[in-house]
Design a protein around this nucleic acid. Sequence first.
DNA 1: TCTGGGGTCCTAGGACCC
DNA 2: TCTGGGGTCCTAGGACCC
Length: 419
Amino acid sequence: MDSKERTIFHIDVNSAFLSFEAVYRLQHGADIDLREIPSAVAGSQATRHGIILAKSTPTKKYGVKTGEAIWQAKQKCPELVIIPPNYGLYMCCHHALVELLREYSDKVQVFSIDECFMDMTGMKILGEPLAVANQIRERIKQELGFTVSVGISSNKLLAKMGSELKKPDAVSTLYPSEIKEKMWELPVEELYMVGPATAPKLRKMGIYTIGDLARCDIELLKYRFKSWGVLLWDYANGIEDSVITASSQSVIKGIGNSTTIHFDVEDKETAHLILLSLVETVGMRLRYAGLSCRVISVSIKRADDLTSYSHQMKIQTPTDCTNAIYEYCKRLFDESWKSEPIRHLGVRVSELSTSDCVQLSMFEKNWEKQKKIDKVVDQLRMRFGPDYIIRSSFLWTRLAPLQGGLSEDANFPVMTSIL
DNA sequence: TCTGGGGTCCTAGGACCC
DNA sequence: TCTGGGGTCCTAGGACCC
């Protein structure tokens, strides 16, 4: 509980997916660097996954945005080179990055596949923070081949805002004393947690910059946005005190799996099969983590207007059994589906607890036998691959019997540096 | 032939109990 | 024959992030 000043780094890989691809290709004899031409990583249009996931700096200049449809991006930039995603490669790069960062601090928080926080408090022996950050940035570039932006400050929010100040391949500080000069002049939507819904509301109130927000009467924000308003005011003033949590101590709150189907689903039977393919991986991930769930939720996205709705239920006894979860999902789907064409289906489980001592309810079906089957199937799939055992209901359907990855690490080994 | 997939947290409103 | 009010639990949906 001491109030000692902390030193926090935020590391952000520049155009992560695209950089990873570029490095991999260069190392395999490619003569062009994808980072230097208009290029983007995007899903397949044929399966209706065609959106931009990452783009090169030259692509940015055409106004192409992440999340945009491929055809829209091509309208802006006809010569755009599209690369299909390779998540296995990205996970390898991610692991290599985290491993390098752990050489500098044992408190590394993985924030996403391309972002990490590091607690560098008390690491003065390594040198001044700015020098150490530059050393890390340079080593990543030399050893892993991609560039990062680093933000340095005394809390996570400011470190993260700091890494945005200059990129690519740069280090910036954003200490509390620098907030006024470096952060307050930025447009309010640049503030972490001010998204597309909040920014217009703030502008309507005459708040255009982060500084406007910081100087705004907190009572007014509280009245207008409840607790959200207080959070935004704090962030605008650089107030944030969450600690760096190593991944080993972070708790999973929920496990979800969803998919955009490559055709519109119009019948219940097909929808059920897709739900099953989603539940298969959710079940495996639950069991892999040694967890059971009490809340099960199904979400449906309409094909016509892309709006979605969800339906959930709480069950008496936590379960990790694929068939049990599937039965609940079918019920949830049947109760909520309004018979319109479906583009996207999702399954999510939450209220997780450890599976060790699950209390059996007298009123619910006994799934003990199913659980044993789950265990055997999991082991076979682990050993021989996910397609080793598939359900006969998927035969002749041309539907994938399993949707989504098993767990982030199940499919690819951890590497120490890129190839 | 439009717009992916994985998360987290908060809030409103209804049911129900006392 | 009178409509108060607090608390908890649950669900749906919306906000944000990457």
